[in-house]
Design a protein around this nucleic acid. Structure first.
Lengths: 413, 413
DNA sequence: GCATTATTTTCAATGCTCGAAAAAAGAAGT
DNA sequence: ACTTCTTTTTTCGAGCATTGAAAATAATGC
């Protein structure tokens, strides 16, 4: 038990949340449309909507449609009031950090990019770096600081069980620092930490409406291998924040050396550096290259597509590792779709035969059939999109779903 | 969106559910205790309770405690009315079927066991077999048929995505038959199908109150290898009914021959027949033994405990397969506890070193640390317990949570 | 027998939802 | 230009479940 709520105020709160997420998902809507989307009565929509309008969270759009051909009273559309809130979104990668300012309507307002060196965080405390970047960004948009409600950070690595810090990260000198909490102290705002793979799953939901309620595993293949999983539209993984660690799932006991220092990880067979290593017959126990230029990886794909034996072999190995990883995942959880994103998505067809075969060699894959495996171009946008939508959704539900203008809620008798 | 409810009746429904599950979990309680357990007000408990009493779902216990020393008005305890409902629970195993009649209080009323031959379901349609057994059971308890509300069936194998039928099963001639639906037709009752591994997880929740809200992977090791997983008290796996297929997760590409016909499954290294095969240096591609007598398996454990090389080796191999399986699972989902049950639980200490090492060789295992792995004696009871509690809970929530004595619910305006 | 103590019920108030009817705002027809 | 039609949105009256506080209940202790 334990959880339990007073349930009464929670109904209203829940319904507000329903309205907000309908708007979030479908964009500007008329009240009538919202009633059918949420299943609430028109009367309730009117009530909830007038609250939202008073609070300035949504605004009525100016009447449009001068193009005739609508019979009755024209609908007035409502949508998010863009200035109702802002969020700052960090995407921290191995060699780059990107900070985006977005408004409550989900529109990108401003953006700063910063290169990262392996030593950056050795010299400068991560929280200082972040607050510095944040200050720089905010100074350029005078109106934003007042309405900034969240700082969200995308990172790679393994989060602790509370999702508060990194236990391990491929980004040098980042693990072990409580930078999220520190930044929250400094800027006095909620700071949330998100595993990149998880945001991939969140982003995939918004890429294609058909996937929004489906069960999807989104696999990123590039300089790392990552995965995020949704189950009927819900993000899976431990906690709200933990996430799957597909890239470092073991593929072969005592196998190839991975960047993480362990051996036999899927990443050590399928990431760009692994393909490179195998294409050039470098021993699989050799230290992984620190970074692989995009052109070099692309060139390998071309060679393989052109029939080059060594390159083809390397992609076969990669496909095999991905395939067995998927087949092992299918044993625990089987999605209807697998989305391959990132630079490696372009090499999907080179890997597909081995992937298919690996899946077919497992009982679940054979019996239930393989999920639909599709590649998706967009390399980095799914992560940004995921971060954006997750953060806005969080503001909707946590900040704006309660607040019925007076403070005490519920029956007072 | 899409789901959405009218919310209003759903509040009442939800709170009734809260009361019922508090009772289910904690046993007989006073109203005051229920108020604190559910977080509802005393007034609401009174209202809900009087409904439940009128409907005959719960009953007040006769005042007890003649032993003095209680100051104020003595509490009257309420508990489930045992005859409010009955459920019939089938546990179908490879060589045995067990049918139990239980009442709404969770008490075992009657039980029939039947041996199964590999040809049983070739000669007799599964649904006929089941309805025959059911008739036999019900004929012995005249009062039960009237209040029978559910038939629940535990099976092994792979369920289809809807959880309506078996796609594959180690039980001969069972897959492909729509016996659940057919039985539902015959006896005109809801018939639910449950994967055994999943019930294991359900059962584990009830074994130890501390585990009820924890994240636990329960692994059965015996003639098969199965797993069920809970996440903060919620059963995981696809759908409500699908489940994890740990035993047939691939361990080694192209590895040992499994009973399922595939190669390299964990089961093919860790089930009793696999240990036997390895202990006697039978090639791992040899056809698995159809059944291993319990004594023979026990004897192997004794030999290994006594230091016998071949037996120790076999259990090491088993531990390795289990360990890598767990390590791979940890990448996707990491529970705080792993419960090992079944005959193989007795061999846990023989396997533990290899399990530990496999987990430590993966990044997540190394960084986050190994979950707490404990063995649990009870061989078969967790499954029964899981089937029992899941079915009763289902009756609570689905049948008894609505029904506010008149039919139309909600505001009527 | 009366005060004390703990459990349970009663009571009045509150706030949410809903359905139906009314109002609003144009388009179409004459 | 005015009425009729159509669709959207608001208003209104009612029902329900919840809650906190107060009252009732049922023993024990002195």
């Amino acid at each position: 038990m334990t959880r339990t709520v007073s349930d009464s105020d929670s109904v209203r709160r829940h319904n507000r949340g329903l309205v907000l997420s309908a708007l979030r998902m479908q964009g500007a809507q008329s009240r009538t449309a919202l009633a059918t989307l949420t299943g609430l009565s028109h009367a309730s929509i009117t009530a909830i909507m007038s609250d939202l309008l008073v609070q300035g969270l949504v605004a009525e759009l100016p009447a449009e449609r001068p193009d005739g051909r609508s019979r009755g009273r024209p609908a007035t559309f409502v949508n998010f009031e863009r200035n109702a809130a802002h969020a700052a979104l960090f995407e921290i990668d191995v060699n780059r950090a990107r900070l985006s300012l977005v408004d409550y309507g989900g529109v990108l307002v401003d953006r700063i990019e910063t290169d990262l060196a392996p030593t950056t965080f050795a010299k400068l405390a991560p929280s200082e770096f972040l607050s510095d970047r944040l200050t720089a960004l905010l100074s350029r948009t005078p109106t934003a600081p007042a309405t900034l409600r969240r700082v969200a950070i995308s990172v790679q690595g393994i989060l602790d069980r509370e999702g508060k810090g990194l236990r391990w990260s491929p980004i040098q000198h980042l693990a072990g620092s409580a930078f999220a909490d520190e930044l929250a102290q400094i800027c006095n705002l909620p700071v949330t930490l998100h595993k990149r793979g998880r945001l991939l799953a969140e982003g995939a939901r918004w890429l294609d409406p058909a996937l929004h309620e489906a069960s999807v595993a989104t696999v990123f293949i590039g300089s790392t291998v990552a995965m995020g999983v949704t189950f009927r539209g819900q993000i899976m993984g431990r906690g709200d924040e933990g996430a799957t660690e597909f890239g470092h799932m073991n593929h072969m006991p005592n196998g190839a050396l991975c960047r993480c220092g362990m051996r036999g990880c899927i990443e050590a067979y399928a990431a760009d550096y692994a393909v490179l290593r195998n294409a050039y017959s470098v021993p699989e126990t050799a230290q992984p290259a620190p970074a692989v230029p995009a052109q070099q990886y692309e060139a390998l794909m071309h060679r393989a597509e052109g029939g080059d034996r060594a390159a083809t072999y390397a992609f076969n190995i990669a496909g095999r590792a991905i395939g067995y990883g998927l087949s092992r995942m299918l044993a625990i959880y089987d999605p209807s779709h697998v989305l391959i994103v990132g630079p490696g998505a372009r090499a999907l067809e080179l890997m597909r035969p081995e992937i298919d075969q690996a899946i077919k060699s497992s009982l679940v894959g054979k019996i239930n059939g393989s999920p639909l495996i599709v590649g998706h171009r967009d390399e980095t946008e799914p992560v940004f999109r995921g971060l954006l939508m997750k953060t806005l959704n969080d503001i909707d539900q946590s900040d704006f779903a309660p607040l019925p203008n007076s403070e005490r809620i519920g029956a007072t008798g």
